[in-house]
Design a binder for these strands. Structure first.
Lengths: 212, 212
DNA sequence: TCTACTATCCAACTTTTGGGGGATTCGCGG
DNA sequence: CCGCGAATCCCCCAAAAGTTGGATAGTAGA
């Protein structure tokens, strides 16, 4: 019987850490105006469970095994454009924030903020609004407007971030070392750094690439 | 009245994420053989609360604001050598594991393992044993036995990992660029990599250094 | 004590990187 | 159609990074 949920916000929790899911669920269920209707530990599971439970708001972590949280949001919104999402993740740079909002998230909360923030985000997003805490909005605003890398440059950056030399990158992409240098120079310019190592460090800090 | 705790394992939870603390606490408190007697959000708070509540086992995250979890363990064990610790953290390389055990932790559990693992770790460590899940023991075993960097090399590595050039590092440490190159070469040898960028990436993967 | 070892330091040499031109192709939108 | 940006390549050169060999000093052990 679904009557018991009639006046409550139906929430789905997506996070690969069982302990974090339990924590979030106990916060949500402790309130009289919301309830957890599903929990998922991966992006794939989230897509499946969304269709089954139709939550009002989905709390989504970004770093997940398999497809990323951003991809899961995009995938769900393709068929369910009215789905609403609050991203709940550890801070890993402004790039993730931008990508998540672009994919269709309406809220963004950092793990470690007081949990009243999370509750407020769920309420606001459920009512059709957006929710970006001041530190997040600030990080987003401080983005260079022209900081977009081309597809090729992103490929080069990710190889750079795995520690490869220009020669390795060249053979990996089947292009010449000269071309690699060209792309690397463009990346250094965009990221406003002076060498490849600094480029990797700031790319990791801003979340443009990840380890492993 | 402490009588209610007479037959229960007294647990302290240390983690800077309130949601994670709530999750862990609800798991522990749901069991009849253990109970949470204190929660801390920083290493400093952990030291204070330990003296006040004398938990049987402390669940300790490693990445904390202020002093690290390892430092907190070391600090507490200086005056309370019988204190027992289970590290509960995200996997960030074998270096952290080694440092934590050296500081006096008896157990090591990764966030994201099924929470039955956490319960078992608490029980085993409380009974005076140790607890290292197979994946952790394996990561520890695969460490190079000779992978220790000298103090100076660690300084250089951390500057390397912030993206500084040899010249910057030299002026930072008040030595010649030639000497810096020498240290860098030694680091490359130890980490078994071929250039500084790769060194930074693998150092980050293994948890020898951290971003920021 | 005297040797062996290690950490630290330095300089000369070789290789890799990054910068500055410039050229070609391809596709996309005005 | 034409301009424009993205991607590809080339040459040359200067600067940075990495290699090798060697000096010094302190320390632990035979």
């Amino acid at each position: 019987m679904n009557m018991v949920y009639a006046d409550k916000i139906k929430v789905m929790v997506v996070d690969d850490h069982p302990l974090m899911r339990v924590g979030v669920a106990s916060i949500v269920n402790a309130r009289s105006d919301m309830t957890v209707v599903a929990q998922a530990g991966s992006g794939e599971e989230a897509v499946t469970l969304f269709l089954k439970h139709k939550p009002d708001v989905t709390l989504m972590d970004l770093r997940l095994p398999g497809i990323s949280g951003v991809d899961a949001i995009r995938s769900i919104r393709e068929t369910q454009p009215r789905a609403r999402f609050v991203v709940l993740t550890t801070y890993e740079g402004d790039a993730d924030i931008h990508r998540a909002l672009e994919a269709g998230a309406q809220g963004y909360v950092i793990k470690g903020m007081p949990y009243q923030t999370l509750v407020e985000a769920l309420q606001r997003v459920h009512k059709g609004g957006r929710f970006l805490p001041p530190p997040i909005a600030r990080a987003l605003a401080s983005r260079m407007p022209d900081s977009e890398l081309s597809a090729r440059e992103q490929e080069v950056l990710s190889l750079l971030a795995s520690g490869k030399s220009n020669k390795d990158i060249a053979s990996n992409l089947h292009i010449t070392e000269a071309t690699v240098k060209c792309h690397v120079s463009a990346i250094l310019l965009r990221l406003n750094v002076s060498d490849r190592t600094e480029a990797v460090v700031t790319a990791l800090q801003r979340g443009l690439v990840h380890l492993e």
